[in-house]
Design a protein around this nucleic acid. Sequence first.
DNA 1: CTGCATCCTTAATGATACTG
DNA 2: CAGTATCATTAAGGATGCAG
Lengths: 136, 136
Amino acid sequence: MPGTPRGTRERPAPQRSTTQWNVMMATCPSRTSLARIANKWTAMIVIALSDSALRFGELQQQVQGISGKVLTDTLRTLERDGIVDRRVFAEVPPRVEYELTPLGSTLIEPLSALRHWAESHFDEVQAARVAYDHRP
Amino acid sequence: MPGTPRGTRERPAPQRSTTQWNVMMATCPSRTSLARIANKWTAMIVIALSDSALRFGELQQQVQGISGKVLTDTLRTLERDGIVDRRVFAEVPPRVEYELTPLGSTLIEPLSALRHWAESHFDEVQAARVAYDHRP
DNA sequence: CTGCATCCTTAATGATACTG
DNA sequence: CAGTATCATTAAGGATGCAG
């Protein structure tokens, strides 16, 4: 029982093999997928990789403030989830490049939208915080 | 110095009072705003409230698996950030309703897009995980 | 350069009991 | 009903040193 179809009525034998998931259900495994992408580090890494493949160090420069451990961990998880591709070049010194997979590329648009929201509405958020904190 | 303009060249005296933020910079305060919305609980709460205002208990039913404490904390933060409005009705038993503010409503579209991505691409993510775990 | 291993600190979340 | 308060648990994050 992986989850329940979204609608109330049930369709008879769907043609597509695509399962219908619903992240609002606690038992639905698709929630793990939402937790992965609804995450500030994931969002910033995907955005950083949206233009071109980057090396580990380049990524760490773009995503300012992220520690090496967290960058490693996040990249590993993204690789496991098929969002990022890791390519190792047999060179000395070693070189590793990360790039978005085709699946990962489909995240650019929604995550860039989030980034745009955060940047364009921060003034309002900040004002709301000040107002909230200044009331008895 | 709240952040640096996005582009490399600087525009001469922008007309709008809107500040240009960049979430990729560690020192940029707009990142707190990204961290708030790039969060699975926030996403699910905003989506749950996208149709209509809901009471505390109704919200907890929709966002399955969230504990009372986490729901309270998240709602309080969203209220402080001007995304959710909290209305208390002087009744017995007490009734409290939460609804999106106009600012919060602007989040429905980008966050629904994330939800849609999670649900429609979960099969691919799952397949990638299996493939990743099944290799030496 | 990359990134793993380790240890440590802090933040997030959960469970429970209790109050207006 | 809608919280608050407390404690316990877990996850995330950071710092450092070392190895391929």
